[in-house]
């Protein structure tokens, strides 16, 4: 237990010490998205009839920031340690694969949560938000962070170099998050793309999360919860099995 708690503490301190870059910067980015998109699109996009576009946008931006930062946390921690060689410090001690796994997932979730709360706090100055179902908000912010933390472990283990990780981020994570209804309701899409969006797990994270704020969503929050949970379990099981095998960690 001590080894798990130590690693968790270290992983949280690792991003917290450079919080300007790991927490403040994404908050600023999200704020810029909000200002620009709400300014440009306010009069052009109508979603859920009564909702101002800026209000609709905020939960999407919060969730997007949560997901990207949770992914960045575990993946960059692993790749850095691998490239620098400092990974030996966690390979030499008797830390079980499950402890490694849990510490990386949890620290990623914490970073996602910190960024999410930061984005929420700042954007609340710009646009009114309801908090209709706070429990759903919490469930999706945590589950989304954990899911992306697990995906980050996969990517961090697989990548040997920083550019491979960047490719993973640019070609998989970015499209998944951007094409998930952050900036629009998928009901405004043509039928074909609506159908495609239903295969994107990030869509359910954002949709369920948004339900927590406004009580309206494209699909039922329970369905979103089911999809996200199954995805999380699948990715988590895969990441854990790689850690157990010592994939690219123990030659």
């Amino acid at each position: 237990m001590t080894s798990f708690l130590t690693l968790l503490r270290k992983e949280i301190l690792r991003f917290w010490k450079v919080g300007f870059q790991t927490v403040a910067a994404p908050v600023l980015t999200a704020m810029l998205y909000l200002l620009i998109f709400s300014h440009v699109l306010e009069d052009h996009v109508r979603v859920y009839d009564t909702l101002p576009y800026a209000s609709f946008l905020v939960p999407g931006l919060v969730m997007m920031s949560v997901l990207q930062n949770a992914f960045a946390n575990s993946s960059s921690s692993l790749i850095q340690a691998k490239v620098m060689g400092s990974i030996v410090f966690i390979l030499l001690p008797p830390i079980s694969p499950f402890s490694l796994f849990s510490a990386y997932i949890l620290s990623s979730t914490v970073r996602g949560f910190a960024v999410g709360v930061g984005v929420l706090a700042v954007t609340m100055f710009f646009t009114p938000l309801g908090f209709t179902h706070p429990a759903w908000i919490l469930v999706f912010i945590l589950l989304g962070g954990a899911m992306m933390g697990a995906l980050g472990i996969l990517a961090g283990l697989w990548a040997d170099k920083f550019d491979q990780l960047a490719a993973f981020q640019n070609f998989i994570i970015m499209p998944l998050t951007f094409l998930s209804g952050v900036f629009y309701s998928i009901h405004s899409l043509p039928a074909f793309w609506q159908g495609v969006s239903h295969y994107n797990p990030v869509f359910y994270m954002i949709d369920g999360f948004r339900y927590g704020f406004f009580g309206v969503s494209d699909v039922s929050p329970w369905q979103s919860l089911a999809v996200v949970s199954v995805c999380f379990l699948f990715v988590a099981a895969f990441a854990l099995s790689l850690l157990k095998r010592g994939y690219k960690l123990r030659a």
Partner: peptide, 11 residues
């Protein structure tokens, strides 16, 4: 910090 962490990893 590095030394405390390392000790912690060993429980």
């Amino acid at each position: 910090e590095v030394l405390r962490f390392q000790a912690g990893y060993f429980g």
